[in-house]
Design a protein around this nucleic acid. Structure first.
Lengths: 130, 130
DNA sequence: ATAGGGCTTCCAGTAGCTGGAGGGTCAAGG
DNA sequence: CCTTGACCCTCCAGCTACTGGAAGCCCTAT
């Protein structure tokens, strides 16, 4: 399979696939003409990567998950630890964003949003104790 | 005021303050020895920037907010538009993260997390239709 | 032969800093 | 007067995870 086909099947841009090769996540073969030649197993890995990335795992997490995936003798605890740590990060991020959202939505609501210069948003940014 | 003092007062690292000067957000004076010399107005702007950034506004948003802040004749509608757009982005991001969190927390719950290789997390990453 | 599409590499840029090298400046203590 | 240590300076590189573009080869169809 050439990169175009793999890109279509996996949903990942060709650029991204080349990048994943660059950083050693996959190692497709090469045809005599220099074109990358993807096996089913490469395709499989790319799909795995696409899903992991869609769940917000970092590339390094993905690298580790991929290694665990390849290892038939892995302990599920290792996988779970990565996922749990990631989950906690996500939860922290959600909490942060919710706090921001609350502040911001309050500000947007109290701002007249008309032609006058008077603006509680700027007032808050000016004075709000961080 | 030297950069160290400003850093302490504003809570921003000196590196960041220099960076903000680099990209034209502030323009402190210079002493004869080459040291940056910050006025109260610079300090004030940095505090404004710190708060805007803490609310997740991009640097470009900050630049625009700062310009509006400086402009006594601004229309509050302009400020509100920036904040509202940002708020909507935040809300989208929260929704995305919540979806991820739900998937992930379900996976973490169903994974035994013991020494056995059997792992629903990897199974999901392998098969889940993106 | 030529046109098009697909493939290759390599370089640069994105956002918002952050770390470090290499060096000048200043105030206090010996 | 000299040294020490805490400042300050500039410039360059690196971080994440790609993305865009230039320059050029390959393959198929007409």
């Amino acid at each position: 399979m050439n990169i175009g086909e793999v890109a279509k099947k996996s949903g990942l841009p060709a650029k991204t696939i080349r990048y994943y090769e660059d950083i050693g996540l996959i190692t497709p073969l090469r045809d005599t003409n220099g074109y990358r030649s993807f096996r089913e197993s490469d395709m499989h890995k790319l799909a795995f990567l696409g899903r992991s990335r869609a769940l917000g795992f970092t590339i390094e997490d993905c690298r580790n998950l991929l290694a665990l995936w390849d290892d038939q003798d892995r302990a599920s605890a290792d996988v779970r630890a990565i996922a749990k740590e990631h989950l906690e990060q996500i939860e922290r991020k959600i909490a942060d964003l919710q706090a921001i959202r609350d502040t911001l939505s309050h500000l947007v609501q109290t701002c007249a949003g008309d032609g006058r210069p008077d603006c509680p948003i700027l007032a808050k940014l000016e004075k709000f104790p961080t």
